[in-house]
Computed example of a mutant assay.
Amino acid sequence: MKGRSCGLFLCLFLGIACFSGYQVLRILHEYRVGADAYFKLEQFASLPPASEETEETPAEPAWPEVDFTALAAVNPDVTAWLYGPDTGISYPVVQGTDNDYYLDHLLDGTANSAGCLFVDTSCRLDFSGRNTVIYG
């Protein structure tokens, strides 16, 4: 009886481990698809070259040039481009009609748990408010 219950527990734990492994691989795949989608969107923004900074003259930040007209053809909800020099941050930002849709959809509308950067619906579309909240 003792050997049989140990075998049952072993099968149960192996089943749980296999299911957990599958879930991790599924999530990693969705993040990879999301990263590939963002990589394809980089064609709409020409990032500035790295600036030379010296002690005498600090470098002025250079900003990317973004083709918002072409991006609007992909998704009319695009409102901004979030960029951080020397950080690897360079992503489009959208603003939908609610704060739920872009939690689990990419910029092109594909359902994906990676989601998309989006502005809170209570914030002004032109960023003229005192604060603008970006979720992502």
Rank of each mutant, 00 (worst) to 15 (best):
W63E: 01
W63I: 03
F39P: 02
E42W: 15
L28D: 15
V33E: 14
R32C: 09
L28Y: 09
L28C: 12
E52N: 08
F39E: 09
E55W: 05
H29E: 10
E60L: 12
E52F: 11
I27V: 11
D67I: 11
E65M: 02
S51M: 09
A62W: 14
P48N: 03
E60A: 12
F39Y: 15
F68W: 04
L41N: 03
T69M: 01
S51I: 08
Y38G: 00
F68H: 00
T57W: 07
A37R: 09
E52T: 11
H29V: 05
E42K: 15
V33H: 10
E55P: 04
E55I: 04
S51A: 13
S46Y: 06
L71M: 07
E53S: 14
L47K: 03
A45L: 07
H29Y: 13
P48W: 06
A37T: 08
K40R: 12
D36M: 14
V66E: 00
S46D: 10
F39W: 09
T57S: 00
E53M: 14
V33L: 06
P64A: 01
E30V: 14
T54S: 07
K40L: 04
L41E: 02
F39C: 06
F44H: 04
T57E: 04
A70V: 06
K40C: 05
A59I: 03
A45Y: 11
Y31M: 08
R32K: 15
I27M: 12
E60Q: 15
L71F: 09
H29L: 08
E53I: 08
W63Y: 12
D36L: 10
E52K: 08
D67E: 03
H29A: 12
L47D: 05
P61L: 02
T54P: 07
P61Y: 01
P58L: 05
E56I: 07
E65S: 11
S51G: 04
